[in-house]
Design a protein around this nucleic acid. Sequence first.
DNA 1: TTGCGAAATGACAACGTTGTCATTTCGTTA
DNA 2: TAACGAAATGACAACGTTGTCATTTCGCAA
Lengths: 336, 336
Amino acid sequence: MATMDKKNVSMNDVAIAAGVSLKTVSRVINEPDSVRESTRDKVHSAMEVLGFRANFAARSLKLGRYGCIGVVMFHLSGGAVDMIDGIADAAEERGFALTMIKKRAGEKMTLAEAARRMSQLPVDGMIFNLRQMVDDFDTFEAPKDLKTVIITPMEHPTCSTVSDDQEGGARMACKYFLDHGHKNVYFVSGKKESLSSQCRMKGWRAALEARGIEPPEPLQGDWNADSGYAAGLVLADKPDCTAVLAANDCMANGVMMALRDKGLSVPDDVSVIGFDDELYKTIPNSILTSVKFRHRELGIRALNEVVAGLEAPSSRSRTLVSGVLVERSSVKDLRA
Amino acid sequence: MATMDKKNVSMNDVAIAAGVSLKTVSRVINEPDSVRESTRDKVHSAMEVLGFRANFAARSLKLGRYGCIGVVMFHLSGGAVDMIDGIADAAEERGFALTMIKKRAGEKMTLAEAARRMSQLPVDGMIFNLRQMVDDFDTFEAPKDLKTVIITPMEHPTCSTVSDDQEGGARMACKYFLDHGHKNVYFVSGKKESLSSQCRMKGWRAALEARGIEPPEPLQGDWNADSGYAAGLVLADKPDCTAVLAANDCMANGVMMALRDKGLSVPDDVSVIGFDDELYKTIPNSILTSVKFRHRELGIRALNEVVAGLEAPSSRSRTLVSGVLVERSSVKDLRA
DNA sequence: TTGCGAAATGACAACGTTGTCATTTCGTTA
DNA sequence: TAACGAAATGACAACGTTGTCATTTCGCAA
C-alpha cells in the first residue's frame, strides 16, 4: 500500500514529508518562482506521494473570495442551453467556476429569495436568468458586496441587465416585410407570461405604428406547432393577410402547414417569418426566414459584466445583444 | 445611513452588538432550540441590523464539507436541459447546490483532467455527463474521497454509472415493428462519435438478430433533418423497406418527407419510428411514434446516486432508466 | 576568509466558523 | 432559604490556508 489513508492531506503534512516549512509549500503553489528548484521538486514529489489537494474552503477563507459566479435559473428551457454554454465558457476563460441553483417547479421564487440563497453559497457575483416577471422585480436590491447581473429584457433600477434585443429583432423582421411591399403584418404570440413573447409583440407593434399602420389583433399561441396551426387556419381566411410574424419557428411551421392545407402557398400567397432559426434541424430544406438571437453571446456578455463589476458591485449597465435575420425564401417581394 | 460599511459582518460583530458570545450566535443559527427565546430575538435583530450573512468558506472549513455537488458537462446539447433540470431539482431537495464546469470547445478533456479541476472546487461529490468516448475512460480512477457518478451508457470498472437504456429503447422500437408484422427494419444513425447513436444502433441490431434477421446496412446521418431526408430518398427505392428506425425525431421527419416526396405514404407504404418524442413541438398533428427517454429522471437518479454514495465513495452501482414508446400512428400493422 | 546584499525560507497570526468542555443561570424541591 | 440538576451560555482551540515580517542561506566581491 503506497496510499496513505489519512482523511485529508494538508499542506502541513506535505511540509513535514518534504522537510520544509508550511509556508514554503504554500509558495510552491502560489509563487513557484520564489522557491529554489531543488526545494520545489522535493515539495512536488511529496505532494504527489501523499496525494495532496488544496483545500478550497481554507483558501477562500483566507483570500476572501471564491472564484465562483452564481447562476440562478428561474426558468430552464431549451434556449437556455446555449446561454449556459456561453456563461460557462466565459467563466472558464476568466478562471471562474459556476455555482448553480434553480427555481423548483411550482415554487414561487422572488429575486430577494434567490439572492438570499445564493449569498450563502460560494460566489463572488451572480447572474439571474429571468424569463418571466417576478413580484419584486422593481423593488429588489442586490447585496451591496455581490455584483448582480439580471438577464432580462426589462430595465432594472439598480442592477445591471443583459438581454437579447427581442424588440429590435421583431422590429427588424416587421420592417423586412414592409420593405418588401407588404401593407400589414399579422402576429402569432407565444405564451402570455413569457417576456420574450411580450417583447417580440411590442417590437412588432412599434414597427407597424412607425409606418402609420394599425396593428391587427395578435393571435395567441403557446410556442408549439399546434397552436401555430390553429392560428394559420384563422389567418388563411383573412384576405388582407399577406405576412405573418410568428413568435417562434415551431409556430411559424404550424402556420405554414395550415396555410398549405387551406390551399395557400408560402411564400406566393402568404409570407412568414419566425424566431430562433431552428426549423432547419427538423424540417428538410426549410425555407423559413427567421430572427436568430445569439444566446451564447448573451451568456458571455452576462458573465463578463459580472466579472467586470466584481470590484464595483454597485455599478450598473444595460447590454443589448442584437439579433440576426437569417434570410431564406419564405418572404415574397411584392414590389414591382 | 443605517447601513454599516464594514466590509464583512462576522458572527463576532453580531455577538458584540447583541451582547452575547460568539458561540451563542452560532447556536442561534445551527440549533435555535437550545437558545432562550429572548436571547434568540436579540441575536436575530442584531443580525438584521448589521446585515449578517454566514461565511461559506469558514463554515465549510470547519465542517469539512461543502453541500455542493460538482457537475462536469463534457457536451452541452439540447437534451441536456432536462437532465440538468432533474439534477438541480434533486440537489435542491436534498439541500445541495451545484458547482458546474464545462469542457470548452476544442479542448481535449479527459476524466482525469475533469476530476483534477473539480477537486479544487467546493464539491462533496461529482457527476460527469459523458456523451462521447474519452481516452482514459477505462483507466480512470476517481479520487478516493469524492463520490463520482458518470452519466454514460458504458460500464465503468470503478465508478457508478447512470444512463438511459438507449439500447433497450432501440430494441423496444424494433420489436414493436416486428410484432406488427414487419420482416425487416432499416436504421438511420446519428453522428458517428455519439454514444447515444452507437447504443441505439446496437439495440436495433440485437433485436433483429434475436429474431434471426440479418440487419441491413445502416444509413449514416448527423441528427439533422436534411440527413434524414437523404436517407429517405435512398430507402424509398428499396422495395423491401417497410420499416425505418431513425436515431432521432428530426431525422425521422426527414425520412418521412423524402418518402412522401417519392410518392410513398407513411404509414401505409412505410412505417417510421424516431427517438426523443419532440416532433410534436414543431409539426402540427404529428403522427410520429417515438421512443422517449426520461432525461429529468436520469438527472434525479444521478444526483441521488452521488448523495447516497457520499459516505462510501468507493461503492459502485449501475442504473439504467428505461425509455417509453410513445405510440402515434406512423407504424402500420401488417398482420392479418 | 570575511562581509555584504539579495534570495530563500520560516515562525506566527489571522481569516470566520463550529466542537469541546467549563461555567453560569434558571427553576424546582427539600 | 439552601441545594440541586438541568438548561443556557461562554472561553478557547481547531479547521487549512495565506500575509507579514523576521531569519537563514546563498553567491559574489573584497
